[in-house]
Design a binder for these strands. Structure first.
Lengths: 229, 229
DNA sequence: TTATGACCATATATTCGTTTTTGGTCATAT
DNA sequence: ATATGACCAAAAACGAATATATGGTCATAA
């Protein structure tokens, strides 16, 4: 099967869904932008939903890959919950589609959420709270921080950062990327002990997390997004 | 004019609008709950919109009064940007209607926002950024904090806190009130210099702000919410 | 063998006439 | 003098008929 064409069709779908939303993006539109016949699209996926599910999974892997790449580009000595979260936000700031997914943007996602939305709910599962608890136990995060509430506050802030265009006038809304440095400063001051805490432990936790994820990653790469071939 | 009856009608309107939203709340419903005839409602206000505008202004004054009362119940030595913001959140946590307004809850506000929404936009105007700048200049807030970005992050977090039922499963969503202590801790660690900064200056700024607001408050109390009499 | 696009069934949108509801009015009862 | 609720015009909702658009199919061209 022609992988280049498949990516081209997915690229076209991405462009269109960001502009028109899922409900208003037709297979016909996608075929036109991708310069293939409409029937050709069905050589790759059995249905419109399958196509978009593939698109969203593709984006999730790209985002995750980007995040890991960014993190691993840092010196190991700089690894911490803060730097990890920071790099995740930088990766997120580079993907409009991922942002739309993260904020459940009904304008973009439309009816897809009703049909296949449950498949993506897990993405937002609070693995973070387990990570925070591990970090606190290991001494990388202050002992006097209520981990559950902190997790909620971080979620609240992320959600707000993803919706700045709603919170302030759209013309005045800061980009996600512009807020990241101050966000990192805030997390650092708030969560990290004054002496820096147990950085070595933090690094070990992150390393294990990355290793575990890579194991999972290798097993999953071939399964999602290809309904027929 | 019968003030007790007016308040009773406003109470009825508040109960109904929180449950059914502006669009589905009829004057007939309100009259029934308030135990008056429908025509009686028009003795107080010329139109449905006027009634709801009065209701929203009433709520704003109640919220503001509550916030000031809470703040002034603190020892003056405890006054700071943090404590002020904290008390504002406590006041907010006690008002479902105020929360709906702050998060532009379309389920509650419906068409009212199209008709009179611009009147309430000013409420959310960033007086906070001026206050933060004043506090930083006076030494009550760290010098290395980007005030503009900080303002946006605080807005983002507030917005997220007001929308926790969207961010996590509604059954698991924490109440606004439960998040306040951790939020205060975060703000304290992030913004306040380690030696506490210039607390006296912070107090003076807040005192002036309260005095200025009380002056304005006295002048406005009789004007808003009474379209006829 | 594979890409194509006309075709089809169904979903969605539009139109129109009818019915119901609602905000607001005011003659009347109290 | 004031509260009431029947009434009215207009808005909103409803349902049926009609028109259009879309996802998916497959005979055919390449």
């Amino acid at each position: 099967m022609n992988d280049e064409r498949e990516q081209r069709i997915l690229d076209a779908a991405e462009t269109l869904v960001l502009h028109y939303g899922y409900d208003k993006t037709t297979i016909s539109d996608i075929a036109q932008v991708a310069k293939v016949a409409k029937g050709t699209v069905y050589l790759h996926w059995k249905s419109k939903e399958d196509l978009f599910e593939a698109l969203f999974w593709r984006e999730i892997w790209k985002y995750t890959d980007d995040m890991l790449t960014r993190l691993q580009a840092l010196p190991v000595e700089e690894w911490s919950f803060i730097s990890m979260y920071e790099q995740a936000m930088f990766a997120l700031s580079g993907s409009a589609l991922m942002q739309a997914m993260m904020r459940d943007d009904t304008r973009v996602l439309g009816n897809f959420m009703h049909k296949r939305g449950d498949k993506f709910l897990k993405m937002k599962q609070p693995m973070r709270i387990e990570l925070l608890a591990l970090m606190q136990k290991a001494g990388a995060i202050r002992q006097d921080v209520d981990i559950e509430a902190a997790n909620h506050l971080i979620s609240a802030m992320s959600y707000g950062m993803l919706n700045m265009h709603v919170i302030v006038q759209p013309e005045e809304a800061p980009t996600l990327e512009n807020l990241i440095p101050t966000m990192s400063q805030m997390l650092q001051r708030w969560l990290v002990p004054e002496d820096g805490g147990n950085r070595e432990a933090a690094r070990q936790i992150i390393m294990q997390m990355i290793a575990a994820f890579k194991t999972q990653y290798q097993g999953k790469e071939m399964d999602d997004g290809h309904s027929n071939t």
